[in-house]
Design a binder for these strands. Structure first.
Length: 213
DNA sequence: ACGAGGATGCTCT
DNA sequence: GAGCATCCTCGTG
């Protein structure tokens, strides 16, 4: 497998989010060995986007940026991991995109397990069905053993990286609005493999729309 | 299947 | 204090 280089991420964020579908998220865990899975769901967070953590760091009067607080990691070099604690409990994994200093990223929301299933099951004791291991950003963070130790580290080299598999799955890709946000709700910046069980269930209303279509 | 509500802690939008 | 890029459990039907 070829590890995706920084150039892959140094592009328009929606293109990166789309192209990450079918790539393989890998964690070469120091104790548990290789944990990996095919990416089946992503979301783009642009610098000019009220749902992005970089939004409030921009001073729109002067056009300057305050590199302070949680969102500062979004301004690192493309390919850097942006990991943060959500709802006080869940580590969510993003990869920084565009050029250094822009402030954009892609959130990894769903992964189809490939290697390290035993470790995933141990990390996710509440999972009743296979899909419950990794069908959501918080769930896959637990299954892969991710936390703030990974924040700010390059995903262009082990232990945590994304690679192009020898055979890229022939996934179809649909788009929709993003899940769990209150601003920027109309932007169609979510990418997912329709019908794949490892896509996050989202809100119940979203699920109704999708299954009745 | 669906909806409501709690857990839980960091950030300040 | 409010608001979160979530997950889980427990009602009801």
């Amino acid at each position: 497998m070829e590890i995706l280089p920084a150039d892959f991420y140094a592009r328009e964020t929606c293109s990166v989010a789309r192209d990450l579908i079918g790539m393989v998220l890998v964690h070469d865990h120091p104790a548990a060995g290789r944990i990996s899975g095919y990416i089946v769901e992503t979301e783009a967070y642009h610098h000019d986007d009220p749902a992005c953590h970089a939004w409030h760091l921009f001073d729109r009067e002067t056009g300057t940026v305050r590199l302070e607080g949680r969102g500062a990691g979004l301004f690192e070099a493309p390919g850097t991991a942006y990991v943060y604690l959500n709802y006080g409990m869940y580590w969510l994994l993003n990869v920084v995109t565009e050029r250094e200093g822009v402030g954009a990223a892609v959130l990894i929301r769903g992964v189809e397990p490939r290697e390290g299933l035993d470790f995933m099951r141990a990390q996710r004791p509440k999972a009743r069905r296979p899909r419950d291991l990794t069908n959501g950003p918080g769930k896959l963070g637990m299954a892969f053993g991710l936390d703030d130790r990974h924040h700010g580290r390059p995903m262009t080299a082990p232990p945590l990286y994304i690679a192009r598999p020898e055979t890229v799955p022939s996934y179809a890709v649909d788009t929709s609005s993003r899940i769990g946000i209150s601003r920027g709700v109309d932007l169609q910046w979510r990418y997912f493999v329709p019908g794949n069980p490892y896509v996050s269930p989202g809100t119940p209303s979203d699920r109704v729309k999708r299954t009745r279509r």
